[in-house]
Nucleic acid binder design. Structure first.
Lengths: 235, 235
DNA sequence: CAGTACGTTCGGCGGCCACCGAACAGTTCC
DNA sequence: GGAACTGTTCGGTGGCCGCCGAACGTACTG
């Protein structure tokens, strides 16, 4: 048993600082960043970044690996990643200003990786398409159907048959504000999409862009019309 | 589009204070508390509590309703409730000391309400039983099966047929550290359990205790052995 | 109309903490 | 071995914030 109050406050306190929050959001790309990279990204001195990272590691949110003179950190596990994404989805939207930032945000909204799976309009479109084609059941919960499992094997995606971890779970999207596909199956699908060149990473961020090949394949396999993916955000 | 960094930090900042965290945890019972009640519970002056509550309302976590000279507050919606429960489940366990607190924690661990559904060992036992009996599918996700839907109608529970809200979803339990049944269907089930006297609230907290009637009914309907519910925590 | 109770506002206090620069330690490269 | 680079530690500083008590406004009570 735990006395949750103080513990909850401590956990929240780790994310309650803008710099640490920015670090965690950057680490959602599942890569391992060096301390210096995070420092320049957040615009703070290296000494400050070092202290923040230590707190996050101490708190169990980050994993560190020393290698030579570098200190590589990444999110501790996918539970942490999903926690951060979930919290991000709960923030109230505040409009962004500036053309440059607008461009970057628009790209992220179109498609991105969320730790190990696809998110943004791309992720939501895939999830919707799977639902309408009966691969995913969302009326009574959130689970692959039997035909959904077959669909994965047709793509030659081998799904981990672990009984403890559900194949899919919902992940709340902070741009679309809707659930999209997460979990081991979604991670495998994301790998396939990137490996087969259906989408490519753009910029140094987590943003991805669907390729012409991807547009065709997504229409073949899921009936997704290219217009759904290219249109701009409704607002 | 939103610039999530500062927003995320602001949201986390609301929960980063021990007093505010304690308030939110108390409000997980879905009741509306007065400002004074929260003040005495948290052991702070009424003026301090007033300021905290204002911040939580301002941040969208709480809903307030003025009535006479009282200020009633409750969690804004079930999204907020599930966010707080999710975050609580991510804290690292720290042993609790003191007999009195131990007793209270043990009761909470046995069974409690989590906003609108059942949690603790009771909630997990129900979820497990439904899984083994084929009412709930958890290998490919987390969803009621067709027989599961029938099971609810046999209990004369009318499930909301809304297409947008899944009937069930997983909720991570901070005592059992496992998923249990949440969502509209779980809320209806919780209502039934309390209304038919299968369980009763004990103390002023969220803890519930299964009645002898409840033990029998749970064995009849779900095959749950009474021993599962009465045994003490493994540690 | 007092008397009591609930909540809010305000000033002030104390502590915590994010930040920086400087000094230092360890690694890599020449 | 010396130069360049990465990261850490340590004072010091400024600001933010949780807390309280006092005073006030407001609502219920007798």
């Amino acid at each position: 048993m735990t006395a949750v109050g103080p513990e909850l406050a401590a956990l929240a306190g780790l994310l309650a600082d803008e710099t640490r929050a920015a670090m965690c959001l950057a680490l959602l790309d599942k890569r391992a960043w060096t301390a210096g990279e995070l420092a320049t990204l957040c615009g703070v001195a290296r000494s400050t970044a070092s202290e923040h990272i230590s707190k996050l590691v101490q708190g169990g949110l980050l994993d560190e690996r020393r290698q030579g003179r570098h200190r590589y950190v990444r999110l501790a596990d996918d539970d942490v990643a999903s926690l951060i994404e979930t919290m991000s989805a709960h923030v109230r939207p505040a409009p962004v200003s500036g053309l440059r930032q607008h461009r970057a945000s628009a790209a992220l909204a179109r498609g991105r990786t969320c730790y190990d799976h696809l998110a943004g309009r791309l992720g939501v479109a895939i999830t919707d398409a799977m639902t309408t084609r009966g691969l995913l059941r969302r009326d009574t919960g959130f689970a692959l159907t039997d035909t959904g499992v077959d669909w994965f094997s047709e793509l030659e995606i081998s799904l981990p048959s672990s009984e403890k971890r559900p194949l899919v779970k919902p992940c709340l999207d902070w741009t679309e504000r809707r659930d999209h596909l997460a979990g081991p199956a979604a991670a495998q699908l994301c790998l396939l999409v990137l490996e087969r060149g259906w989408a490519v990473r753009i910029g140094s961020q987590r943003a991805v862009r669907v390729t012409p090949l991807g547009l065709a394949e997504l229409r073949d396999h899921l009936g997704i019309e290219p217009a759904e993916l290219n249109e701009d955000a409704p607002t």
